[in-house]
Amino acid sequence: MPVTDELRTTESVRTRSSVAGQTAVVTGGSSGIGRAIAETFVADGADVVICSRTQADVDAVAEELNAADRPGSVLPVECDVTDRDSVDALAEATVEEFGGVDILVNNAGGTGEGGPLHEVAPDDWDSVIEVNLTGTYNVTHAFADSLRENGGAVVNTASMAGRYGVAEMGPYSAAKAGVSALTRTLAVEWSVDDVRVNAVEPGFIATPAVREWFGLDEIPARSDVDREIGSPHEVADAVRFLASDAASFITGQTISPTGPPNTFEPPTG
């Protein structure tokens, strides 16, 4: 009796690790981690629908990537993940253009203003929960039928803030903890439909906002393992893995692109 399910070939390994030929939706795809995910998927041969609240922002990304002579393509759609009508329109545009979706990446989010919890205004709390947690629900719910019909993969963007809790980031920490819990719950519910649901839980990543915050002129090199800040494309590589058939026996899990273990303390320098 063979000890493996099949004899591996170079081509089968490459195919299993690829998202080529898949249709993916990436929310929050105009910059930072979302844009890196879109770039990675398109370079691998996936057709990607990217969205953000401003059409011009996703148009600029789509124009650049579609002109880069890569095997995949990009469809830009304006969408506010907190608005159900807007999310329904995103789902309709995706189905109309590609017939359905194979991969959903819930990446849209935001930290809000921050500050001690007793100083956080109710409206600020609501807005952070709405975009990070409710937005993830809204988009996942809108694509549920398409995903469950033929199987697929969902990858949610959580955060190390949701695991540890971060002072003066109470709403964001709570929202991202909710995303992680929703990931585990949905993984159980949708496993019978052959849909895998996982999450990434990034630490400090050199997005434009983080680079400005810490005064970074350059994104740290991948070869330096002992570092406190990663690159958006390192997160994108983890998302690509979770979305591919290489992760076929992984669901309800969270991968943490964080570098050496830490408790989400800000980098020291």
Rank of each mutant, 00 (worst) to 15 (best):
E97L: 00
D85C: 00
D102H: 10
G115S: 07
T54E: 15
T82M: 13
R84C: 02
L117C: 11
A62N: 02
C79V: 04
I50L: 08
E78V: 07
G110D: 14
E78M: 13
D85A: 15
V131K: 06
V95D: 07
V77S: 06
A68C: 11
V87L: 11
A67V: 00
A56S: 15
N106C: 13
E64L: 08
G115Q: 07
S86A: 08
D83V: 02
G114W: 10
D57A: 15
V120R: 06
D88V: 00
R53V: 02
I103K: 10
N106V: 09
E96R: 13
D123Q: 12
V77K: 10
V61N: 05
G115L: 01
V101I: 13
G114P: 02
V77H: 05
A121K: 12
G110C: 13
T111S: 15
A60E: 14
I50H: 06
T82S: 11
I129C: 04
P71V: 05
D80L: 00
A91F: 00
Q55H: 08
E92P: 01
P76H: 04
A60M: 05
E64N: 12
V74A: 12
A121V: 06
A93C: 03
D80H: 13
A91G: 12
T111I: 15
A121G: 09
E130I: 02
D102Y: 05
A56G: 09
D126R: 15
A89T: 08
A89P: 02
W125L: 10
S52A: 15
E78Y: 01
E64P: 00
V77C: 13
N66D: 12
E119L: 12
G72M: 12
E97A: 15
R53H: 08
D83H: 05
E119S: 08
E119D: 14
L65C: 06
G110A: 12
V61D: 09
C79F: 00
N106D: 10
T111M: 14
